[in-house]
């Protein structure tokens, strides 16, 4: 397996250049984001790779993965549709939106479509409270996709259209 530093030399270089040379640990979060976009999740091997680049242990790196919700330690759908169901969005019908969307896709909340492409999850506030129902799409498993994309003022129909587009990609 080629290393992250070889595979994405420019990205890695740009990340490392942001921090003082003696503070490489600061790069752990962006590097994890990069490996996750490459692999779709953070594997044990990736933990070790990132840990070495940052001069910390695999355990310390795993702590970061475990603490922050945008990192995943298991592979699910290529696209994670993350619907905000927090208070403000819920006041604007987000819970209903989520359940109808899942129903339309035939999966439970948190489930993945059989083709492995789409996972639908409920998440906490995404700072788009005035544009509910809304969700973000976390694209995983390819660094060429946009990492995260917001989709606001959604209906189940518009969401399903988008999902179809994502499946075609």
């Amino acid at each position: 397996m080629t290393s992250l530093a070889e595979q994405y030399a420019d990205e890695v270089q740009a990340i490392l250049a942001k921090y003082p040379p003696e503070q490489k640990r600061s790069a752990v979060m962006p590097l994890l984001a990069l490996v996750q976009r490459r692999d779709g999740f953070v594997s044990k091997a990736a933990l070790q790779e990132v840990a070495q680049m940052c001069g910390i242990t695999s355990t310390e790196t795993a702590s970061i993965v475990g603490f922050y919700t945008l990192y995943h330690d298991e592979k699910k759908g290529t696209y994670r549709i993350q619907v905000c169901t927090d208070l403000c969005c819920a006041l604007r019908g987000a819970d209903e939106f989520l359940h109808k969307l899942c129903e339309a896709l035939g999966i439970p909340v948190g489930g993945t479509t059989p083709d492995g492409k789409i996972t639908v999850e409920a998440v906490m506030c995404l700072a788009a409270c005035d544009k509910a129902p809304m969700f973000q799409v976390q694209a995983l498993g390819s660094v060429h996709h946009d990492g995260l994309e917001y989709h606001e003022n959604q209906t189940v129909e518009s969401a399903l259209r988008l999902i179809e587009e994502l499946r075609q990609k």
Binding site: T57, T61, S63, G66
Partner: peptide, 20 residues
Amino acid sequence: DPVIGFYQRGRAIQIATFSE
């Protein structure tokens, strides 16, 4: 020798190792 650490957060936070 930080080979044990916290994993997850909140009430789910737990001690774990991911070192070899």
